[in-house]
Design a protein around this nucleic acid. Structure first.
Lengths: 161, 161
DNA sequence: GAATGGATACTCGGATACGAGCTGTCCGAGTAAAATGGG
DNA sequence: CCCATTTTACTCGGACAGCTCGTATCCGAGTATCCATTC
């Protein structure tokens, strides 16, 4: 079980966007340069965030991405599901269906006790992610590293290196 | 993010093993036939369970796999980590290291707030899995479907179809 | 009849191909800004 | 000087390869069983 690399990039990029002036957009290329990431691939992830309604994108000069809503209303789960998709990690393929006495007209994903237990664990995972907003993470970073917001903003507003 | 198919197989196979007579072994081929699974591949998963100390394997005629300890002492997390490995799904690659002001001698997996939040969610997931033992699942199945243990045992002890 | 040695068949175990999905890259459609020419 | 029009440059957006890892398979090492042979 392995999570997409893009999730980490997306989270950090959203965090960086939250430190910009409200309404200010930033291009995928510049967001990628901040961490020395492949620009086109990060662009792909940001597109997914835009499709999910987390970011808004504007093309053309002075265009780019910006947060679609306040960080208080963006949970970590929103970002993760935007990148990873909504399909659960443990997909019950219904082995019981192929076993003796298996019926085709039964939804074993719902009835199978094993599936339920695994599903319960994933629910706990999602609940924990949904309980943390981007604003919470942002606040923690600002408390521990007070210079980060100003430093980040100045990096993005400085002329291209 | 996608969990190995083998996890589901391993869980159901452990459950089936728990319904056999204590000390009775069952071959990978027969366990696979129960759900119509590829035998050699299931064997691979069972090997992983044996390496993790969840099952014991004995070669030769009358050999096979059996539970290494009581179902009360086998958690779902044990099975999952045996198959999936212990590496967490969200691996912090330390994008901060490549960012401005990044240091090579800092463990960002520990300091990065994003990484910590994601790690906390995975901890909740593991905790939920660790709280459920194979005996719990077994008891739930026996309560809901009382005929399952006898039926399963008879299937495994019946002559090969 | 009992014991012994060997042959046998069966099981796990790891080494070996195949394929899906993540990773990475490219170029085109569309847009806002800037430049240009005229009034 | 101001405005309309054209040009320009820049951005996202989706379509196209490369590669790692999960999926599937095969054959060999080792062992308990069974059988033939001998005492």
């Amino acid at each position: 079980m392995r999570m997409n690399e893009g999730v980490e990039w997306a989270l950090h990029s959203c965090l960086n966007l939250s430190w910009l002036e409200p309404g200010e957009a930033m291009t995928a290329a510049r967001l990628a340069a901040f961490y020395d990431l492949p620009a086109a691939y990060l662009n792909k992830q940001l597109q997914a965030l835009a499709r999910a309604g987390i970011l808004t994108s504007t093309p053309g000069p002075r265009g780019g991405f910006r947060l679609a809503r306040a960080p208080e209303r963006i949970t970590l789960l929103d970002v993760v599901t935007a990148i990873e998709g909504a399909t659960p990690a443990f997909r019950c393929e219904g082995v019981l269906r192929n076993g003796p006495g298996g019926r085709d007209d039964v939804d074993y994903a719902k009835l199978c006790v094993v599936s339920q237990s695994m599903h319960r664990a994933e629910l706990a995972w999602r609940k924990e992610l949904a309980g943390q907003t981007l604003a919470d993470v942002k606040a923690t970073v600002e408390r521990r590293y007070p210079e980060t917001p100003a430093r980040t903003r100045s990096w993005f507003t400085s002329p291209r290196a």
